[in-house]
């Protein structure tokens, strides 16, 4: 194991706060599981990745690239659905894999990622590069649960052509250390990328979430939306950046991070950056953190709910819009997992 720095901010701030990046102990994957595809029509083994594909760190990206590699090409004008499931069972305690998705002009893909497994699992090292040509559309739903002792790296990069659209909805519910590194380049005019995440931090979970979207094309649209609850001694760091580059006139971007604090020992760090060199844009950030509102709890209890039920309803209501944007088959499972974690109070 060695100490590495991950998820470094694109522009730095004060060192004494120790939030410019996160230092973690890194170990390379040992025994690798295999991914399970629902359909291999468009899947080929092997993949190449551009040099500008940056992961959470060079070490974590290299670990993913050292595993199995696939290229998924959706031909121009085609529509496809694909589920990729990774199960980390006792005999396959790690996973390492890298994926290159190419959606040719006008292609559409609905992609579901499912990551689950037992407490014996050690880690998952995932890297995916999404290249969307003009007018291509990508919808990703991701559910990650269980894996109580695992470190989970999910590193993704989106390159969007003209009028291409990518919509990502993730439920980051499991794992001991959850590291997400998502970067998007809105190169084409009118390209759009949304990154929505729900999370529940319990026990000593560490969530390290990094999102960075570059606006290059005109009239591009971005959304980064994180909603979650923190219980026990969980720690969450939410680094998000919207970067409006000169020339991206007419672009709009929003980023938000809303966290409910359920424990006095939970730690919540948020760094929502707005970087701008173009005047004709609208960039907004809103974040809030706090307890479950006493008035809301009181109201629900006056309608017959117990304190626990009232609290759960309020937390769920915060997360529900993102849960509802997941692929239908994942929604109930995600809600059940959120309820299970909140009912356990995470302490």
């Amino acid at each position: 194991m060695k100490e590495i720095a991950i998820n470094r901010l694109p522009v730095l701030t004060y060192r004494y706060l120790k939030t410019n990046d996160t230092k973690i102990l890194f170990s390379a994957p040992q025994v690798s599981a295999a991914a399970d595809f629902s359909d291999k029509t468009y899947v080929t083994v092997g993949a190449e990745f551009p040099e500008n594909f940056e992961g959470a760190s060079s070490e974590t990206l290299a670990a993913a690239l050292a595993g199995e590699k696939y290229t998924i090409t959706i031909p121009s004008g085609m529509q496809a659905k694909l589920t990729i499931e990774i199960k980390l069972e006792n005999q396959h305690a790690d996973y390492a894999g890298a994926y290159h998705f190419l959606l040719q002009k006008g292609a559409k893909l609905e992609l579901v990622w499912k990551l689950s497994g037992t407490e014996a699992a050690q880690g998952s090292y995932l890297a995916s590069y999404y290249e969307l040509e003009d007018a291509a559309e990508l919808k990703i739903s991701k559910l990650q649960a269980d894996l109580a002792e695992a470190t989970l790296y999910d590193q993704r990069f989106f390159k969007l052509g003209k009028a291409a659209k990518a919509d990502v909805a993730s439920a980051e519910l499991g794992g001991k250390q959850v590291i997400v590194h998502s970067r998007g380049a809105l190169n084409g005019d009118e390209a759009a990328l949304t990154e929505r995440t729900v999370y529940t931090g319990t026990g000593k979970q560490h969530l390290d979430l990094f999102y960075h979207i570059d606006h290059w094309g005109k009239k591009t649209v971005s959304l980064i939306d994180g909603k979650g609850a923190l219980a026990g001694e969980a720690k969450k760091i939410f680094r998000s950046t919207l970067d409006f580059h000169r020339g991206c006139a007419g672009s709009e971007g929003e980023e938000g991070d809303y966290a409910i604090q359920l424990s006095p020992k939970a730690k919540n760090i948020s760094l929502p950056l707005l970087l701008c060199t173009e005047d004709n844009v609208a960039g907004n950030h809103a974040s809030s953190a706090g307890q479950v509102s006493e008035e809301d709890v009181y109201y629900l209890m006056s309608r017959g709910f117990s304190w626990e039920e009232a609290r759960r309803i309020i937390v769920e209501s915060l997360m529900r819009p993102i849960v509802d944007s997941l692929e239908t088959s994942l929604q109930e499972e995600t809600l059940e997992e959120i309820r299970r974690k909140l009912d356990a109070k995470g302490e």
Binding site: L17, F244, Q261, S270, T277, V281, A289
Partner: peptide, 28 residues
């Protein structure tokens, strides 16, 4: 559009009994 404007906030919360709201806007 020759100029630059960045917002770099750092928010660290270490207890549950708080109420924090943060808003930022950038544009013309």
């Amino acid at each position: 559009n020759e100029s630059r404007s960045d917002t770099i906030p750092d928010i660290i919360i270490e207890n549950d009994n708080i109420d924090l709201g943060h808003e930022a806007k950038i544009g013309r």
